[in-house]
Design a protein around this nucleic acid. Sequence first.
DNA 1: ATCTCTTGTAAAAAGGATTTCAAAACTGGG
DNA 2: CCCAGTTTTGAAATCCTTTTTACAAGAGAT
Lengths: 339, 339
Amino acid sequence: MKRPSIGDVARHAGVSTATVSRALNMPASVTEKTRMRVEEAVEALHYVQSETARNFKMQRAHSVLVVAHDIGNIYYSELFRGVQRRAEASNYAITITNPSPGGTKELIFNQLRTAKVDGVIVLSGYEMSDDDYDLLEKLYSGHPPIVAMCEERGHVRVPQILIDNEHAGYLAGRHLIEMGHRKIAHAYGPHRMPVRRARANGFRRAMAEAGLTVREEYFLEGGFSSPGGRAAAQSYLSLKDRPTAVFCGNDESAMGFMSQLSKYGVSVPEDVSVVGFDDIVLADCYIPALTTLHQPKEEMGRQAMSLLLGLIESPADVQQTIVELPVHLIPRDSVKRLK
Amino acid sequence: MKRPSIGDVARHAGVSTATVSRALNMPASVTEKTRMRVEEAVEALHYVQSETARNFKMQRAHSVLVVAHDIGNIYYSELFRGVQRRAEASNYAITITNPSPGGTKELIFNQLRTAKVDGVIVLSGYEMSDDDYDLLEKLYSGHPPIVAMCEERGHVRVPQILIDNEHAGYLAGRHLIEMGHRKIAHAYGPHRMPVRRARANGFRRAMAEAGLTVREEYFLEGGFSSPGGRAAAQSYLSLKDRPTAVFCGNDESAMGFMSQLSKYGVSVPEDVSVVGFDDIVLADCYIPALTTLHQPKEEMGRQAMSLLLGLIESPADVQQTIVELPVHLIPRDSVKRLK
DNA sequence: ATCTCTTGTAAAAAGGATTTCAAAACTGGG
DNA sequence: CCCAGTTTTGAAATCCTTTTTACAAGAGAT
């Protein structure tokens, strides 16, 4: 007993395979009576179309690749949810992959060229050069459907969904200034991430606007992970003149930062105020609840998938290839008003 | 300019398509010279095999489905990492899906029967009855390759990767008792999850072993999310005789619980001790660092994928269909020693 | 020199659904 | 009842690779 094929259904219903196919895919193009007969046969045989055969014929994988450096990451997993929901709505599957370091490029090349996926969404850390992209365009004969997320505007040559990191950094700085802080540090994200620079620039702009200078030793090397935050905390503790507030690169590192400080009896927000970035799911459960910049993560995922589907299905119709979503600051309890 | 096919390569190399296929898939069955010629042609034409054509012919999707209720969940995302790593090693892709509530069954049926995936990994919340399973077995003609994770032993009819939730619950209870606690509450997970009962049973056993009775009002309805933890906190606060310790269903709810308590000036571990479950990535960054039961999440994912690959590729060789991984308690700072 | 064995080549089948093209079956008007 | 025009249907081609079969040529053994 094997899977029934379209031929079995056709035989059972006493029609041709073409008619079965039409009855299933374009019911309107077939008489009521024929449709009924086909449906009965489908029912009787427990027939379902084979996706692989269909994909083969249609030259579509009905699947897109999502490339992320760490699929276990909290921040990313919220993005995935948005991507997944939008994909599902259009009957696409998503394949989520962690490329081996430095292998992103090969992975994308390979998956797109073997027709394993119809398009790619790349999350922060796009490693393709313009030359690579030219080659891919040539091999792909046209614009390969790739969408980037969480990159900096202009940093990659593909359509992208992003937020205004510079503005977000500015908001963080301004908020701390408004709360009366003057000595403010910034715990940096990792070097390879271009968003890091944009956030820092915005922060600097807010400081400059308030006539404040940012001391060089107040830029703490941190990374985007909790160990990174702990490292930044160590740097913080070793400062002679400690800042009264710190703007951390993201929420995870902010939590590592605060956790490490607590081991040395330094508490937030009493001794130092902290602002995070991302608004990950547990940010409001931290003690103190973390003041942070909210990114519409699920929406970003959804929009990335929408854009990608547009590129796949009707590239000519895609007008807007850069979509910027709003960020806003959510005041919670990790920032203290001074005086 | 379109994708080159195997025929183009054959023509370019002056051999037949069969030879090209052999040169690529079984290099040993072809002379060195022929292989070189084929490789040159492949190089020159930038040829890559089409995955869809290959899958079609081979009747394999080289892809497995991972079904989870919430792909954005922190706990799951760590499991995904393990699954993904193991899958990648065998050149399989994973598709992660959030089924619509109640739709898990249809989803699995559909995806397996359309041959879209070669197997399925289901995370906690398997909704198939024995009848459904019989039907699937009949339609699939054999044992459909399905592996469950995070279920209770014996609760589902498929091979599974699990932990001993009863023992884990026992460990949590015993630890709190050893730390001098007598009045201990338990914040429950959601009703639909069978693991909830096992954890509670283990906890009860530890209490009974110490000659302690568990008051009924000390079982707090909680859920597995941070809002659930907040709700449990409200129940806790309303108790006349408050317990000195609470064993929470998982880390997320524990964080919601502690966060909510802090709003009412109740602090952990001074006023109440807390034990979580899962050891999610930020558990050690919480203030206080959370004492919890560590699940080897990535390893569980890896093993689930290994088991599934076995079921797909050589079902006859699969001996052990239930794999139990060890859990252990990690003491941190959220439990205070009494007197 | 004949026979067997190896190795590569050519040709064709298989896999399941879609699509094209032409034939058949209808429709309505005269 | 016939014809032109329209709708519905069926046979066959197509998508591309892998596998199978049949065969030819060359190598080695008797």
